[in-house]
Amino acid sequence: MAITGLILIGFLLIHMYGNLKAFSGADAYNHYAEWLKTEVLYPLIPKGQFIWIFRAFMLAAIVLHIGAAWHLTKRAHAARSTKYVAKKTIQQTYESRMMRWGGVILAALLVFHLAQFTVQAIHFGFKPGAGAYEMVVAEFQMFPMVLLYAVWVGVVCIHIRHGFWSAFATLGANTSAKAREVLNALAWVVAVLLFVGFMAMPVAVLAGVIK
């Protein structure tokens, strides 16, 4: 759970950085997208093949992450077979309570995201086969899409706010009360950074800065 979670956070940080290429214009963005799909690690690996290795790796991480979550949830439910009549909590965060349902919501919206931008099975405002830049600009000129995207990124970042610190604690990094503070503060930094970074491009498109 912790290791796959950190892999996914690492991916998101790179993905977010890549999205910011849209500020450098259509050519830079499209070239970057093309490079990702065909030329990463070329000529070590034949053109267009690294992306499939990478996709398999990401899929494995996601499947293992969900599998671990499923296992933990089942164990937790079995461990509290009888519910409390009255139950209060002292210190748990909203983020930690949202891990399971938040995970379900973000996974559902991830399918929607991939169906649009990777498979192009669903397309709003752009035709199938459109270039990466054309695609995001057409998409995010629609306010409802930016709003839905903001909700999704929000859910992802709430998940990461607890997940980041929890992953490090599971790997043994929570060595003192001070370490706990630092890890939680870092989790906030990563979550806010990802939210701002991912929302910058869609908001800029909506505002007409990127067109």
Binding site: L72, A76, A79, I90, Q91, T93, G172, N174
Partner: peptide, 25 residues
């Protein structure tokens, strides 16, 4: 049949002996 830890911290918040959460790490 006990559940798994997800680092929520409710345990340490009620511990009568103030065992800190970091023992889990």
């Amino acid at each position: 049949g006990f559940g798994g830890c997800t680092n929520i911290g409710e345990c340490a918040a009620v511990c009568p002996k103030q065992i800190p959460l970091d023992v889990i790490s």
